[in-house]
């Protein structure tokens, strides 16, 4: 027998033995996949945005089916429709949907603040941030090169007058802009929150006066006047506890810099 034929025969026989062994093993040790997972997956929009906190829609569907306690109303793009559909598949109550959207904690547009230098590098926030914390007078404020605008999958965020502004009607609260903003100005906030702090600077008052006319001075007036005690100061910025806030708007009235604003109507 020629050596070539021997070689082919030997390798084929070994290959066939391996194949038989594998197919037997895959039959004997087959793992049953829960048939509800693909059904739940179909109810989700398939945006794979990760806004729910799970790795994509497949991950969320698997988590819902495997763990009874996983909330089924986390999908922001799908909204109440998706939650209701999942609830139908699994026979579970959907629960209330908290409508959330992205919020920019800065109102430093070109009318109230300015540039300390002319940045001529690549026109992105990330590049500008690398050079002395950006070219704006306020090192904490919106850089206005629109990195968030570029990554938004729903065209819900736009830079107008060097300040990023969110259109809450279009926003699906996926959180991609939150992760993109090099200044960490954007957060996902419940739309039911009565008031919001529209500033992120940690400067002391006199410096704020120099860099931005709309910035929080850190005067602590809001924290002192809040009847519910829902506001405390952290690094010269007020922090509002949404659990305690009653929506009385006292802070909005007393704020001398007008940087605590009602949640509705601040997006423009």
């Amino acid at each position: 027998m020629s050596p070539i034929i021997t070689a082919i025969l030997v390798v084929s026989v070994i290959g066939v033995i391996c194949a038989v062994m594998l197919s037997v093993a895959s039959k004997v040790m087959a793992v049953e996949v829960d048939e509800r997972i693909p059904k739940v997956r179909e109810c989700l929009p398939g945006a794979n945005c990760g806004g729910c906190g799970y790795p994509g829609c497949d991950g969320y569907a698997a988590a819902i089916v495997e763990d009874e306690n996983t909330p089924i109303n986390l999908c922001a793009p799908g909204g109440p429709a998706a939650a209701a559909a999942i609830g139908k598949v699994l026979g579970r109550e959907a629960g209330a949907i908290v409508k959330q959207s992205a919020f920019v904690h800065c109102r430093g547009d070109c009318n109230v603040t300015g540039h300390k230098e002319r940045f001529q590098g690549e026109q992105t926030c990330a590049a500008a941030k690398l050079l002395f914390s950006g070219d704006g007078k306020c090192a904490y404020g919106c850089l206005g090169y629109g990195d968030c605008e570029k990554v938004c999958p729903e065209d819900a965020i736009h830079v107008i007058d060097t300040l990023a502004r969110v259109n809450p009607a279009k926003c699906i609260a996926c959180g991609i802009c939150v992760r993109t903003c090099p200044q960490h100005l954007i957060a996902i906030r419940a739309e039911s929150m009565p008031v919001v702090v529209k500033c992120s600077n940690h400067y002391k008052g006199p410096i704020v006066k120099k860099v931005c006319t709309a910035g929080c001075l850190g005067c602590t007036l809001c924290a002192k006047k809040c009847p519910a005690g829902a506001i405390h100061m952290e690094q010269d910025l007020p922090v509002i506890d949404p659990e305690k806030c009653t929506g009385c708007m006292t802070c909005v009235t007393v704020c001398p810099a007008k940087c605590i604003l009602p949640r509705n109507g601040t997006e423009d």
Binding site: V11, I14, C18
Partner: peptide, 9 residues
């Protein structure tokens, strides 16, 4: 070749 085949299986 044989080793790769067997190890892959």
């Amino acid at each position: 070749i044989v080793f790769i085949l067997v190890i892959a299986a």
